[in-house]
C-alpha cells in the first residue's frame, strides 16, 4: 500500500470517529455482559470455595477447639451485620427496579442507602475486630499462640475469611459509588442499566458469602 493512500484512509477514519455512532459502540450485548458477569461471580465463589474447603478440613480435625473458640465471637454484632447486609441487598434490588421504571431520583436514593449499609457493615466489623485485638486475639499474638492449635487455626480462618469478605465489601462499595456517578450523569438510564444490574449481582454475591460465613463462625456451637 502506498503511504499517501494510507493517509487518505486514515483521514477518513478520523472523520468517522467524530461521529457518535462508531461501529464498536453501536450495539451493546446485554445478555453477553451478563454471561461475563455470572462467569466472574462463579470464579469468586470458587475463590471462597478454597477457604470453605480449608474450614471443613480443620473443623473435622479440631471440632472441639472450634466450638470453644467460636464462643468468644460477638453474636449480637454478627447478627446486626447480617441484617444490615440482607437489607442492603433489598435496597440494591429496589435501585435496579426503580431505574427500570425510569425513576432516577428513587434509584439514586436506594443506591445511596446500599452504600450507607455497606459502610455501616464495615464500621461494625471494625469495632468487632478491634475488640478482639484488645483481648490479644490476632494472628501470631502471644495470647493466641498459648491456645491449642485448633483455636489458632479457627482465628486464622476467621480473620482471613471475614477479611477477604470485608475486602469484597470495600470493592463492592467503590463499584457502587461509580454506579452512582453513572446514574447521576445519565450514563445509566431506563434503556441501558446493565452496569447497575451487574453491580447488583456482585453485591448480592457479597451478601450471599456472608450468609454462609455467619453460621459457620458465629452460630455452630
Amino acid at each position: 500500500m502506498k503511504s499517501t493512500e494510507v493517509e487518505v484512509v486514515q483521514e477518513k477514519i478520523a472523520e468517522k470517529q467524530q461521529e457518535p455512532s462508531h461501529s464498536e459502540h453501536t450495539h451493546k450485548d446485554f445478555f453477553g455482559a451478563k454471561i461475563g458477569m455470572w462467569l466472574f461471580l462463579f470464579t469468586e465463589m470458587l475463590l471462597f470455595g478454597g477457604l470453605f474447603l480449608a474450614y471443613m478440613v480443620y473443623r473435622l480435625q479440631y471440632s472441639i477447639d472450634f466450638v470453644i473458640a467460636a464462643q468468644d465471637l460477638n453474636l449480637l454484632l454478627g447478627t446486626i451485620n447480617t441484617i444490615i447486609l440482607l437489607t442492603s441487598s433489598l435496597t440494591m434490588a429496589l435501585s435496579i427496579a426503580a431505574i427500570q421504571r425510569g425513576r432516577k431520583a428513587l434509584s439514586i436514593f436506594f443506591l445511596l442507602s446500599t452504600i450507607g449499609f455497606a459502610l455501616a457493615f464495615l464500621v461494625i466489623k471494625y469495632f468487632e475486630w478491634t475488640a478482639k485485638f484488645h483481648h490479644g486475639i490476632y494472628p501470631n499474638s502471644p495470647e493466641l499462640l498459648n491456645k491449642p492449635n485448633g483455636e489458632i487455626i479457627f482465628y486464622g480462618l476467621y480473620y482471613s475469611m471475614t477479611g477477604l469478605h470485608a475486602l469484597h465489601v470495600v470493592v463492592g462499595a467503590i463499584l457502587l459509588l461509580f454506579m452512582l456517578l453513572f446514574l447521576w450523569r445519565n450514563k445509566i438510564h431506563k434503556e441501558d442499566y446493565i452496569k447497575l444490574e451487574n453491580s447488583g449481582l456482585y453485591w448480592h454475591l457479597v451478601d450471599l458469602i456472608w450468609i454462609f460465613l455467619f453460621p459457620l463462625f458465629y452460630l455452630i456451637h
Binding site: 480449608a54 479440631y62 501470631n140 492449635n149 489458632i152 487455626i153 486464622g156
Partner: peptide, 10 residues
C-alpha cells in the same frame, strides 16, 4: 502466621 499451612501451628 495464621497457621493454616504451618505444621508448627497445627
Amino acid at each position: 502466621h495464621i497457621g493454616i499451612f504451618d505444621p508448627a501451628l497445627g
